[in-house]
């Protein structure tokens, strides 16, 4: 028997408007725009990279390819010190804030609703306040302490300042994970005779590991890159990299070595994140989740 071919009804005949072409255009346009925006986000990093492989010190013309700035990265004493200070301060601030922030988050989570909201409101201040106001505020507090501790300004104030603005990030990353924990888990541990302090490290901390990790990552990112708060709270020659760069831009004496340092940091970060990601997907595959 001969098969009859019926015409397929279009969307229009069903009473719908056909947006197919419009949607495709929108999709292509969207892809281009997203690509453009991501490119713009990375544009300055690309320029920094170009400047780091330029044999000329000038930022206006490209002489020829060189890696000499990578070898001379730590030759500039001021810059070397600034890098050291940045690493020491951000690593210790991250470490302290991560440990304390986790403990504090557990404390906040166990408070009553009213009290919790009040403390979270205060916790938002370092996060949302203008950097310049935070910097000045901390400087004023430290200045008030000067008569008691005359040599306060320096690494101590810088560390306190960095802890001040990194703690909220850790707390806000850990809190949502804490809320997801099954309360029975803790009760079971306590019923079985574990002391609350031990339960904190044996039950709660392992359960919120992901939050702690992302909090630490955020804290380090913020601390490593901070300029304004550090600018107001440091003292007598204890510059971090940002302060040193700001000074050098002002004096027009930026050495290309700093571009190579920055490029190297970016490359290390990418490698680090890819490794972490690789491990995660491998573990997930092993667990059969993917």
């Amino acid at each position: 028997m001969e098969q009859k071919h019926y015409e397929v009804a279009t969307l229009k005949e069903y009473g719908y408007k056909d947006y197919h072409i419009l949607q495709t255009i929108f999709k292509i346009f969207g892809r281009i725009l997203v690509a453009f925006i991501v490119m713009m986000l990375y544009f300055s990093i690309f320029i920094i990279f170009l400047q780091s492989i330029n044999s000329s010190k000038s930022v206006t013309h490209f002489e020829h390819f060189t890696l000499k700035w990578y070898l001379e990265m730590f030759d500039n004493r001021q810059m070397r010190l600034a890098i050291q200070h940045t690493l020491i301060i951000s690593a210790s601030a991250t470490l302290i804030s991560t440990v304390l922030g986790t403990i504090i988050a557990v404390g906040i989570n166990s408070l009553e609703k009213k009290k919790r909201q009040r403390i979270l409101l205060l916790n938002n201040i370092p996060l949302l306040n203008a950097d310049i106001v935070t910097g000045i505020s901390l400087m004023l507090v430290f200045s008030c302490l000067l008569p008691i501790f005359p040599y306060l300004f320096g690494w101590k104030t810088l560390l306190i300042a960095h802890m001040f603005f990194t703690l909220p990030y850790v707390i806000l990353s850990v809190l949502p994970k804490l809320r997801e924990i099954d309360p029975n888990l803790l009760d079971a541990a306590l019923d079985l005779g574990v002391k609350p302090r031990r339960a904190l490290f044996k039950v709660i901390v392992p359960a919120v590991k992901a939050g702690i990790f992302s909090g630490a990552l955020l804290a380090f990112t913020m601390s490593f890159d901070d300029f304004v708060v550090s600018y107001y709270t440091t003292g007598n020659g204890f510059d971090n990299l940002s302060i040193w760069i700001y000074g050098s831009i002002g004096r027009n004496s930026l050495t290309p070595a700093v571009y190579s340092f920055n490029t190297m940091i970016t490359i290390i970060t990418v490698l680090f994140l890819l490794t972490v990601h690789g491990f995660q997907t491998r573990r997930m595959k092993k667990n059969g989740k993917m």
């Binding site: 300055s44 920094i48 890159d225 940002s242 760069i245 700001y246 831009i249 920055n262």
Partner: peptide, 13 residues
């Protein structure tokens, strides 16, 4: 990732 580069350097570039 872009935030890991120093903000002042990025702006200067």
């Amino acid at each position: 990732l872009p935030m890991w580069s120093n903000i002042l350097l990025r702006i200067e570039a």
